[in-house]
Write a protein that binds this DNA or RNA. Structure first.
Lengths: 139, 139
DNA sequence: GTTTGTGCAAAAGCTTTGCACGTTT
DNA sequence: AAACGTGCAAAGCTTTTGCACAAAC
């Protein structure tokens, strides 16, 4: 594990904000000013392959990373993109379907689409498509 | 609804393969050779905003679209990317989580990560990261 | 004739990669 | 010196956008 990789891994474990590669890059440069974006991406990919972090896709914007590799689900605000972890133990059900029995299901993840208190206050009942926002691009 | 938009919408409803923008473009050109990729993207985005189709993100590769806008979940093969719909009525559970109660949960979607029969045969028990594959890029 | 959408091409955003060099063993 | 990872820059892929023109109302 190179110094760069260790720094990248530590940065991801230090936050619960599901950061982007760019966030990791910007924060890594504070401690290691000459680190390159390519190195960040390369190490993020190997960390994912090694199963040490998770990659989370969004239909809009960059991939986010998550150091929480315990089985868990996500609560996602469709207003601002805020994403919270929901531990498997906090979900009191096991989803199962006839179809899943024909396959070898390894794992399930639930995505709870919601409005966080802030967005509920701002937008009232107005439903809107997720377009990114403050928490969507952590500084 | 322009002729282009109607064609694009019809193409998406015609398949269960959760196609990409590029697939829609290639198939649209068969009927309308001068349609542009920009038009395809513009119309896909407006169809999503209108709630007539869904956009599905993947951590690798382009966004896929889904004309099934009933509440449903997905069964996703981590070997080849094959994605099947699982209707809400096929899932037997009652979701309830302490954390979700603080928020206004509008909807939930379950992602079942699995190995399809083909990939199970090919790869045996060898776990692998999703890297795309045949069904990942519908022709 | 005004509004709206299109085709085209350029640009933007995100990610990967080739290469020469530096590190580690 | 062999194996590996890095910084840099270029390239790649996906998506968006500015603009002049066409279509629809």
């Amino acid at each position: 594990m190179s110094r760069q990789k260790e720094l990248i891994y530590n940065l991801i474990t230090s936050t619960m904000s599901h950061p982007t590669a760019d966030w990791v890059y910007r924060n890594a440069r504070r401690k290691m000013p000459r680190i390159s974006l390519g190195t960040v991406y390369r190490n993020l990919n190997t960390l994912v392959q090694e199963g040490r972090i998770l990659a989370i896709a969004n239909s809009r914007g960059p991939v986010r990373y998550d150091a929480n590799i315990t089985r868990h689900s996500h609560l996602k605000c469709i207003g601002c993109g805020l994403m919270l972890d929901v531990p498997e133990t906090d979900i009191d059900f096991v989803p199962r379907s006839p179809k899943t029995r024909q396959f070898e299901v390894l794992e399930y993840r639930v995505e709870f689409l919601c409005l966080c208190p802030d967005c509920r206050a701002k937008n009232g009942s107005k439903k809107q498509t997720f377009q990114g926002g403050q928490n969507a691009n952590p500084k």
